[in-house]
Design a protein around this nucleic acid. Structure first.
Lengths: 200, 200
DNA sequence: AGTGATGTTCACAGATCAGTGTAGTGATCG
DNA sequence: CGATCACTACACTGATCTGTGAACATCACT
C-alpha cells in the first residue's frame, strides 16, 4: 500500500514528477517549442533516457503538462463556484472571482497557457490540442450550466458572452497590462447577468 | 518618380514582397518558430541570401510580418468606424462589426496572429513584442476615445470591458468553435454601452 | 563605359533538435 | 536467488536551425 512509486502523485514516479514540474515551468515561461528536452533533463537533474522512459515523447510530455494544468485550473474554479451558495445567481460570476484571484499577485504576464499552446501547436493531431480545446469548451459549458441553474434567459448566447469576457480579460491583463481586467470583466458580466435574470 | 524598387509597396523590392507574403502566410498558419527560413526561401522561390540581404534576420522578418498585419488591421477597423456617422454612439461598436466581418467566411481557426506571436515570443527585447503589445493597447485606446466621444460614463473601465469582449470573442471563435462569437460580443457591448450612455 | 542595386548559386559553419542504444547500479518483491 | 523496476551515464544519429562568404549575372541609370 505504501508504494513509493505511485499513489498520491497521479501515479508518477519521483523522477517523472520532477520532470513534469520543471517542464511545466519552462514551457509556460519560455514557450513549448523554445524549450528542448535536453534543457528539461538538465534543469530537472534527470537523464533524457528517463524522460523518454516515462513520457515516451516530447509531444506526450506537453500533453501531460497541459492536462495537469487543466485539472488544477478546473478544481480551482469549481472551488470558487462551490463557495457561492447554490441558488444564488452570483454563482455564475464565480469563474471571474477565480480569475481575479489568479491574476492578483504576480504580474507573470505570460497569459493563458492553453491559449499560448494553441498558437504554438496548430497540428490538428497533436495530443495537446484536445486538451486546450477541451479547457475552453468546458468553461463555456460550465457557464451555460450555471446560467440555466440561475434561470437566465438565452443561456447559450450568454455563455458565449461570458466566455468571451473571461478569455478577453486574460488577454487584456497579459498583453495590454490591464491589472484590473478581471474585475472589469466581472462587473460587465454582472450587468449582462442581471439583465438576463430580471427579464430584460 | 516611377521607381520600380520603391513606391506603392512600402519600399519593398519585388523579392522582399514575395518573401514577406509567403512568410506571413506560413507564420500565421504554422506558427513562427515552426517555420524555418529555408522553408520560406524555398516556398517563395527566392534565395536565403536575398532574404537576409533584405530583412537582416528572422526576428526582423517576423516583426515586418506583424507590423504589416497590424497596419492592415488598423486600417480595416478605421474604415468600419468611419462607416458609422460621427456622433452616433454605435461608432463604439464598429470594431465588433469589423471582427464579425473578419470571422465571417472561412473557419481559419488560427485565431489572432498577435496573440499567437505573444505566446511564442516571450523574450522581452524581441522586436515583434512591441508590435503585438501595441496592437492591443491601440484598440483599447481607440475604444476609450470612441467612448469619450459618445459621452459614455467611466470610459476607462468600459474600454477595458470592450477590449476584453473583443479579444475574448476571437478566442471563443478560434478555440471553442463559436462562429457567432463576434455577434454575441457585439450584442453584449451594446448592452454595456447603452447603460453607460443613458446614465445607468 | 562605369556604377550600384538586385538577385542567384552553392557551399559551409556551428549549434541545437528529438530520440535511441547499450551498459550498469541499487532497491524492492515474490 | 532471481526478476523487475527506476534510474544513471554517455555516446551517437540524422535532421534541422539561423546565419555567412564568395563569386557571378542582370538591369537601370548616368
Amino acid at each position: 500500500m505504501a508504494d513509493a512509486t505511485a499513489a498520491g502523485d497521479g501515479g508518477l514516479t519521483p523522477a517523472a514528477r520532477r520532470i513534469l514540474d520543471v517542464a511545466s515551468e519552462l514551457f509556460y515561461q519560455r514557450g513549448i517549442r523554445a524549450v528542448g528536452v535536453d534543457t528539461i533533463a538538465a534543469e530537472s537533474g534527470i537523464t533524457k533516457r528517463t524522460l523518454y522512459d516515462r513520457f515516451g515523447s516530447k509531444e506526450a510530455l506537453v500533453a501531460a503538462y497541459l492536462g495537469a494544468r487543466d485539472e488544477r485550473w478546473r478544481a480551482f474554479v469549481e472551488s470558487r463556484i462551490a463557495a457561492v451558495p447554490a441558488g444564488s445567481p452570483a454563482r455564475v460570476l464565480a469563474p471571474f472571482d477565480a480569475l481575479a484571484e489568479w491574476t492578483a499577485p504576480p504580474p507573470s504576464a505570460r497569459g493563458c497557457a492553453f491559449l499560448n499552446a494553441f498558437g504554438e501547436l496548430p497540428e490538428p493531431d497533436h495530443p495537446a490540442r484536445a486538451v486546450v480545446i477541451g479547457e475552453k469548451t468546458w468553461l463555456r459549458d460550465r457557464f451555460r450550466a450555471l446560467l440555466a441553474e440561475a434561470g437566465a434567459a438565452r443561456p447559450d448566447g450568454l455563455a458565449v458572452q461570458l466566455l468571451s469576457l473571461h478569455e478577453g480579460a486574460v488577454v487584456a491583463y497579459s498583453m495590454a497590462g490591464e491589472r484590473g481586467a478581471a474585475a472589469e470583466a466581472r462587473a460587465a458580466a454582472r450587468v449582462l447577468l442581471d439583465r438576463a435574470v430580471a427579464g430584460g
